[in-house]
Each structure stands twice: as structure tokens, then as C-alpha cells.
Design a protein around this nucleic acid. Structure first.
Lengths: 164, 164
DNA sequence: CGGCAATTGTTGTCGTCAACAACAATCTTC
DNA sequence: GAAGATTGTTGTTGACGACAACAATTGCCG
């Protein structure tokens, strides 16, 4: 609706003095409903929390998972390429890879073509670990379906396909 | 599509040695496509950046806007109530309100009913300022429409209505 | 060829944000 | 009235994005 003229009068909702509100669930959001950003933010928080919980047993967070997935699908990429593809800053990727390399999931191999850059590869245990992560991620994705419905999840992915 | 069984085999994409990839836009995301969380995260980042840019002239960030909106629609709420409604931690809300109070947009009034809590209200200039913020927020919302389409935005809001 | 700009990985800083923990003041409940 | 819960506050930690600076290396151009 977005009331084109932004209705300045705030509709004070019965001036009931100082906080006489019983169930805190009845607080009006007013203009906040109808803002895509708000709904998307709340949903994103929910999704990440479920992802973190579901992949908690293997201690993998969403960003780590995305890095492993991209390296697994494109072995030999440079850090720049991975960072650019995922929209992470290369400075941030350094720390992420430090952690993943310490856990023996990823290895940096000095490129001979360009001695500035590193070719990124999964280790052997990185491959098998990623397989397990993907199973858990699929489970998480099922939670999303349970939450918003299978059809809605498909529609949502379609709507946001441009942001891959 | 979402290959129901998570296809464990990573499909190495032609072992082309060390990073022989021309346009960095052609890096496969593999399993990442089909993950709702990834798409939502990217979209959320885009939305917030546009919101911050559009409301940049008045120096209001999304969280501040949500706080002002809720207080404006429900004057007299306690900090606990606002925090719970918006899913913010009350510790975080303290700093947010500090900033908004310094800018004379919000005032904390000691509640007489419960002397632990503060009743939150917009100041007079807070009311008029919020009106302007809402106009700018509506402009931002139009940017979202331009990005994903009017119909898709509606559908998205409907899908995520449960996360208000 | 030589020098200069650009790129790559790295380190560091700053600000935002969520998650906790602890605390004093105050309310609630028994 | 005492014990336990709630409210606002302060502080810490860790993930994350945005920058800036730097050394090593590459690429380009005169």
C-alpha cells in the first residue's frame, strides 16, 4: 500500500499512558510492514541462524561454506577470483582461508604462472568434508521449505536469481 | 531444479590446470545456486546499501529507521518492548537510542508506573523528521521495485509476511 | 630494455552488529 | 520482608564489511 503521501499523523493508538501493553506481540509495526528490506532482513537472520545451528556439529558458517563450495566447483582459482565471485573483500578472505587451511580443508598452492597469486584447492579430506557439509546444507534447505513452503521457496529463488 | 540428492560428485569442470579462466564472471557457483540463504543474503546486502544511500542525506540507517517507526506508531513503549518487537538486543538498543536522543529525535521519559523502565516518545522534530524519512524510504522501496519488478516485490512481501 | 602503473596477497584499523555476561535498581511473588 | 525476576546499562567477544597501506610481482609503454 505505502500510502503515497506518507500520512504524517501517526495515529497514536489510544494514548494509554505509560506502556500498558500486555502481550508484546500486539505492537504495531505501522509503516514497517510493506518494507521489503525489513522482511528480508528478518528472514535472512532466521535462515543464517538455522544454517549455523544445522551445520553446528561440523562448525561451518555460511561464508565458510560458500568459499568451500566455490573452490570445490572451480579448483585452482586465485583468492582475488573467489573474493570477487562471492562479493567478499580479499582482505577478509585471507582470514577465512587461514582458518580453513589450518583445518586442512583447503590448501594454497603458489601459482607458477603468476607468482603473486595462490591457486586454491580442496584437500582430500576437504573434498569428503564438503560432501558432508552439502548433506547438512540440504537438510537446512529442507527447514526453509518447512518454514515458508516448498512452492514459495522455489518462487523466492526465482525472484532473487539475479543476485546469485 | 535443485538436484534432490545433493549430487556428491563435484564435477570438476574440466581440469584446466592453474586458473585459466578468462572472464571472472564465468565462475560456477555449483551447489550455491539453489541455496535460499545465499540469494537472500546477497539481496539483503543490496537492499541495505540502497537504503543507506537513499537515506544518506538524512543519515538514517535501516535499524534506526525501524526503531523510529515503531516508537512513532506506539508511543510510550519501553526499551524492552521495542527491542523484543524488532528482534534487537536491549543492549544494542541502548546505543541506538543514545544516538537518536542526542539528535533530539527521541526522548526517554522515566515511567512512573515502573521506575525501572523508560517510556519512549518521538520529539516534535522527531515526528516531522520521521515524516521525511518515510518519504525517502518510499523512494527506496521504488528502487526495489525497479530492481526485481513490482509484482515480484509484492510476492516476496507476501511470502515473507510471517517474519514481520 | 627500463621504469612506472596495476595487481595480488597480506596486515592493520575502524565501525556495525549479534551474542553474552555481569551489575544496580526496581518490581513481583510468596 | 526475602528471593527471584525484570529493566536498563556497561563491557567483551567474534563475525563481517570498508579502507588504507605495504611488499612482491606482473604488465605495459615509451
Amino acid at each position: 500500500m505505502t500510502t503515497t503521501t506518507t500520512r504524517t499523523a501517526p495515529r497514536k493508538r489510544a494514548a494509554n499512558g505509560a506502556g500498558r501493553r500486555d502481550s508484546a506481540d500486539e505492537i504495531g509495526l505501522d509503516a514497517l510492514v510493506g518494507h521489503a528490506g525489513y522482511a528480508v532482513r528478518r528472514f535472512q537472520i532466521w535462515i543464517f541462524q538455522d544454517f549455523i545451528k544445522t551445520l553446528g556439529q561440523v562448525d561451518i558458517r555460511p561464508t565458510q561454506y560458500s568459499v568451500l563450495t566455490v573452490i570445490g566447483a572451480n579448483p585452482g582459482l586465485s583468492q582475488m577470483a573467489v573474493a570477487k565471485r562471492l562479493g567478499i573483500e580479499r582482505a577478509r578472505l585471507v582470514h577465512l582461508l587461514d582458518g580453513l587451511e589450518q583445518r586442512k580443508l583447503v590448501k594454497r598452492i603458489k601459482s607458477k604462472a603468476d607468482r603473486r597469486s595462490h591457486a586454491l584447492h580442496l584437500t582430500v579430506q576437504g573434498e569428503t568434508a564438503l560432501a558432508k557439509f552439502k548433506r547438512l546444507a540440504a537438510e537446512h534447505e529442507r527447514h526453509v521449505e518447512d518454514k515458508i513452503g516448498k512452492a514459495n521457496r522455489e518462487r523466492l529463488l526465482q525472484i532473487l536469481a539475479g543476485f546469485t
